[in-house]
Nucleic acid binder design. Structure first.
Length: 592
DNA sequence: GATTTCACGTA
DNA sequence: CGTACGTGAAATCC
């Protein structure tokens, strides 16, 4: 492969409260805050650097806010999460990770301590105000905040960032083989995802406010004029249920215990009142039917109602929330303010701006395809050649497609009982390598052994792999030996079986999240020249907002991006990934 | 006031 | 057909 451009120069960017600092090859500059965005943009145009940042939040939020496209970064926080697992990734955590210091001892900012407790006593332990490192070698808690003033100090923080980058890249390379490049690419795409999160927060998701008001009104009633009006509307909603229970009109539908008693009064005896338990009673009990309808409406009224609209949809009709590039467990993206769990009935309200459309694209059967990559199962990979993976599996096993699907899902997600039982045995004979990967992940979870996703993310369980960890025959995971000092000390409670299921799920879900982010990062670059932007990421689905005239190009770009991202991520084209991409105006359209 | 439980939305 | 996460209301703990 000789088509790679020369590696981008690494330039550290540190943004302090009063000024910023950039340090790279032949470069040491202190910048006024007001000039950071323009200088970054200019440097991207000239030397195309990869920006080394303590976090995208620290160094790039202002740059992104100014509308600058930051194509390449090395996010020390995201790399730290990848290397060491978990979610905490302050500069102090990153430094501790690089130095093999215990994360338990990382200094915590004073405001993080118990409210009302005077922390000054403890801060004396940090001795001198000039020292960047504490006596125990940790980065001081306020290194990037109060302490980071003056070009001398910022320069030291920039140098430290470059040191951490070298250290992180070094430990990735130390794992050796073709796995190393893969881990480094994971850092690249995770870093890009962190920048994408800033863009998602900046731009928001376009909402048709009037449509949203209509949909909310249909579920929750008209917008209340005052508290008394709100109480009246609420009582009206409640009455639609309570009129089916004469004599018990005082019952509180928002209190599960009272609901259970209420249901008992009409002869429905259930251990709890969750929807799936009540669903069977729906046709025979009008009260249950009314209650379940009430629950849907109540969800909209409380969580996605007028308050939600007023607080999270801006004057520019964009829904905004905080985004994170990786969650605590397996590394999926997360979003707040309903961006990730907007009820389907409200989706018609997500509408492209006039003159724009959405390209909506979602990965098909992504988790079994990821399993084929992670396990290296040649036979299972063969099945991914098909648009519908379950069809060739069914053919190979000589069973119905529906049975094959249930069996594959059962193997991946845990249930080993029921109708899938017989087909599962066939599955293990047909795809022993893939099934073995799942079994070993389960066993790792039971034994509290940490594991790694395909892209190298540590899923910590407390017990790190010992240096003499046996190599995996399939090449998956490449478990590394963690410096013993920084053990994240994660205690995932629950039963053996619960930990086993968690581990089995995490290695698949987490690996799928990496492929998704690699895809998203590629799409982000590909649609920008078309005036397009990613406005929503939903685990296996992308929503791209693009001028109508460029819709076809964007649609093709999204497909091409998947081909390139999956080839690079998986290191092969043997496993095929597929996406369904359609051009729509409202999110509710083209929902398969 | 902070934490836990219940419930349910998305993938 | 499991797992993950975010949200809100009520109960519970301190």
């Amino acid at each position: 492969m000789s088509d790679h451009p020369p590696p981008a120069p690494l330039v550290a960017l540190v943004v302090g409260p009063h000024e910023a600092y950039a340090a790279g090859p032949g470069l040491r500059e202190s910048w006024p805050l007001a000039e950071v965005a323009s200088r970054v943009a200019r440097m991207i145009g000239s030397i195309h650097p990869r920006w080394v940042v303590w976090s995208a939040e620290n160094a790039l939020r202002g740059v992104v806010a100014a509308g600058v496209d930051v194509p390449r970064s090395w996010d020390l926080a995201e790399a730290h999460r990848l290397l060491h697992g978990g979610w905490r990734a302050t500069p102090g955590d990153v430094w501790a990770g690089c130095r093999g210091l215990r994360v338990d001892d990382v200094p915590v900012p004073r405001r993080g301590r118990q409210a009302g407790f005077d922390g000054d006593l403890f801060d004396l332990a940090e001795r001198s105000v000039d020292e960047l490192l504490t006596e125990s070698g940790h980065l001081r808690a306020d290194a990037l905040e109060g302490w980071a003033t003056g070009s001398e100090r910022l320069g030291r923080l920039a140098d430290l960032a470059l040191t951490c980058q070298r250290e992180q890249e070094g430990s990735l390379r130390a794992r050796g083989g073709d796995g190393a490049e893969r881990l480094i690419r994971t850092v690249w795409s995770e870093s890009a995802a962190a920048v994408l999160c800033l863009e998602l927060e900046r731009d928001g998701l376009p909402v048709d406010r009037l449509a949203a008001e209509d949909l909310i009104s249909a579920a929750a009633g008209p917008r209340p004029r005052d508290d008394a009006d709100a109480a009246r509307i609420r009582a009206q909603r409640d009455h639609a249920v309570l009129r089916h229970a004469p004599g018990r009109e005082r019952a509180d539908l928002r209190n599960p215990a009272q609901v259970r008693t209420l249901l008992q009064s009409v002869g429905v005896d259930v251990p709890h009142t969750r929807a799936w338990v009540l669903e069977p009673y729906r046709p025979t009990h009008a009260l249950v039917d009314a209650l379940l309808t009430w629950r849907k409406n109540e969800r909209v009224a409380t969580t996605y109602g007028y308050r939600w609209l007023d607080e999270h949809v801006g004057a520019d009709d964009r829904l905004r929330g905080r985004w994170t590039a990786c969650d605590g467990a397996a590394g999926r993206m997360t979003a707040q303010n309903g961006l990730h769990n907007l009820p389907a009935p409200l989706r018609p309200a997500i509408r492209a701006e006039p003159g724009y459309v959405f390209v909506r694209a979602d990965l098909g059967q992504v988790e079994p395809r990821v399993l084929a990559v992670v396990s290296g199962d040649r036979a299972f990979a063969e099945a991914t050649r098909s648009d519908d993976l379950y069809a060739p599996v069914a053919a190979k096993l000589g069973i119905e497609r529906s049975v094959a699907k249930v069996a594959v899902l059962a193997a991946m997600y845990g249930q080993r009982s029921g109708a899938a039982g017989e087909a599962l045995k066939d599955l293990e004979r047909a795809y022993p390598v893939a099934m073995d990967l799942l079994d070993r992940a389960y066993a790792d979870g039971v034994a509290r052994r940490s594991l790694r996703t395909y892209g190298g993310r540590l899923i910590p369980f407390g017990i790190e792999p010992v240096p003499a960890d046996p190599p995996r025959a399939d090449g998956a995971g490449v478990p590394g030996s963690e410096p013993s000092g920084i053990r994240p000390d994660v205690d995932r409670g629950g039963s053996d079986a619960a930990r086993g299921r968690f581990a089995r799920n995490a290695i698949i879900q987490g690996s799928a999240a990496e492929l998704f982010k690699a895809w998203a990062a590629t799409v982000r670059h590909a649609v920008r020249p078309l005036g397009g932007q990613i406005v929503l990421c939903l685990h296996d689905e992308l929503l791209v907002h693009v001028p109508q005239a460029r819709a076809g190009e964007a649609q093709r770009a999204v497909q091409d991006a998947l081909g390139r991202a999956s080839h690079t991520w998986a290191g092969t084209d043997v496993v095929r990934f597929v996406a369904d991409a359609s051009v729509i105006t409202r999110w509710s359209e083209a929902k398969d």
